[in-house]
Design a binder for these strands. Structure first.
Lengths: 333, 333
DNA sequence: CTGTTAGCGCTTTCAG
DNA sequence: CTGAAAGCGCTAACAG
């Protein structure tokens, strides 16, 4: 139904090769240039990317695997990634693993069948074995946000441990001694941030009661549940460090429902600056991830690798989180 | 690099046609069946979808155009749509228009070049002209959530006007007379919900001061700004109907910062049940859109249309929003 | 600069 | 049920 390059040949009398060459940026005589331009416009000709892909072996399509597309954190990242890919002429094929490990495995194969030129992964698992088929196929991979154990891929993360340390140190500087943490150990990010918490506490010689360390999952409901438990302790903490965006939400919800108020009774320090920190009152202190940079950098690394013929050593980019001040911390005399 | 069907031919001694037929579900002798299975497994053969697409003229890929992928509302919908498409063997190519009309135009062409089998649109514009190239190309289209003026496409929406009426009537039944609305007239959904508000007020013989009707945009900041203005009025409303998810956020933020409290001084009724209504205290009354159904239905309509050879008349599906009760409404004497 | 030829990997007639 | 051959729309040598 749509016009093909052969129709352009009919219309111009030129050969397929000449037309193809011009369409791909080659040089032809001005006279022919005009002829082709005219025919293209008149016939509404658009190159068939599928056919092109079959011969060039590049589809100009990048597969993006994400553990949950509905999360606003990932959505924000996908937005940046998608825009940048598009700017560079690439399409974005998204696979939502929905936190399911098996799905993640299957997604890799799915993307390979689609012959994507490269894959960007925001992984569910810390175990990177699921990427093996892509490695075997020689398809470039970039891992974002969450690192994967023992991988040989390009990787873009932030300084999770140091950022957490900075957050906890801020609480300590404000005079807090009884500081709890809510995070997850399953994910790379959560476990690194926990380390930062532990480190800051240790450096300052502070004790950590066992019940102050909540390591479950990075979800609203886990944050909510954990905060309720913390507030119900005989000796509740005076400050809480929340190591993830969704946890922020749950914690704030629990505090709102309780008799405690922030920052008078409980000080809060969260992670990620998306919506909550700004809409809530008092304004939440957070460590802000450079999400746009994370997205841009991952695209940059991937396209660089796709573009280069020689093999490149894996690169690890570590970006820095920055502190956004708020009103959610009480200074203790 | 990866195995092709020719490698299978080498390995089995059968012809391309036989192998292809079997791989596509055809019947072959049990003996050959085994041979092929064995070779496929041993060589890790996976069909090249690009080559297949070139000859069958179907790519098993659906283009999804969305006005903002970072919004949690769209993310939730995309999650459902993506899962269902995948279940049916289709991939999802996402184009974020970022609220940009020109981008939306360009995205259609982009998807057509990628030879998608169909397009699902959550549109930026009420004007559907940007879809013309897809119509011309005969690519099936389904429009979700926001209808498009004078379109001939399949369309899945909710009963926006009636839902808004129900919300406002609930406020009226609780004794409220001074009711304001914050919405947008630019989008289809917002304008329908405004009509519902106006209708409910009129039916109950209630006056609507001009300054009670805020029609700007469906954004957090517009909600915030409008609510501040409403609360600063000499005679502020006793209740506010918020016609969109993002507006909810802005309004709640403004109330939190003010001297008013909900529901004592101001009653609130919102739209969409995503995160906010449950994490805030008091729990927000909302009209809940059946987002999962919206997504599933749109995929169903699209695949049905792709599957059928005969032309089908456009179908309009209207789903119903349901009320989720909360604690954000005060009953007045 | 232009044209001819071959072929990407697969499906699909049409004979056998 | 199986195989030979043609071709999807395009690009990539290689001659001219």
């Amino acid at each position: 139904m749509p016009a093909t390059i052969k129709d352009i040949r009919e219309a111009t009398g030129l050969s397929l090769a000449t037309i193809s060459k011009y369409l791909n940026g080659g040089n032809v005589l001005p006279k022919n240039r005009e002829k082709i331009d005219e025919a293209v416009k008149r016939l509404h000709y658009r190159p068939n990317e599928i056919a092109r892909g079959l011969v060039t072996n590049r589809t100009k399509t990048i597969g993006v695997m994400v553990y949950n597309i509905a999360s606003i954190f990932n959505g924000t990242m996908l937005s940046t990634i998608g825009k940048e890919l598009r700017r560079q002429g690439y399409a974005m094929l998204i696979c939502d693993s929905a936190g399911d490990t098996e799905m993640e495995h299957s997604n890799v194969q799915f993307l390979l069948n689609k012959k994507v030129d490269g894959i960007i992964v925001i992984p569910t698992e810390r175990n990177g074995d699921f990427l093996q088929p892509a490695r075997d196929a020689g398809v470039p991979i970039v891992i974002v946000d969450r690192a994967v154990d023992g991988s040989e891929e390009d990787c873009v993360t932030i300084n999770n441990k140091e950022a957490a340390e900075e957050a906890v140190n801020t609480l300590i500087c404000a005079g807090h001694r009884k500081i709890a943490v809510i995070c997850s150990e399953r994910e790379y990010t959560g476990s690194r941030r926990l380390l930062g918490y532990l480190e800051a506490m240790k450096q300052n010689g502070l004790e950590i009661p066992e019940e102050y360390v909540k390591t479950g999952s990075q979800t609203v409901s886990y944050g909510y549940q954990s905060m309720r438990e913390l507030l119900a302790l005989p000796e509740p903490p005076t400050a809480v460090f929340m190591a993830n965006y969704d946890i922020n939400f749950g914690v704030v919800m629990a505090v709102n429902e309780s008799d405690f108020s922030c920052p008078e009774d409980i000080s809060l320090f969260g992670f990620d600056d998306l919506l909550l920190p700004r809409i809530m009152s008092p304004k939440l202190y957070v460590m802000k991830q450079p999400m746009e940079e994370l997205g841009l950098k991952s695209v940059e690394l991937l396209l660089e690798r796709i573009g280069s013929k020689e093999p490149m050593p894996p690169r690890q980019i570590v970006l820095k989180a920055t502190m956004m001040k708020g009103d959610s911390i009480r200074t203790i005399g």
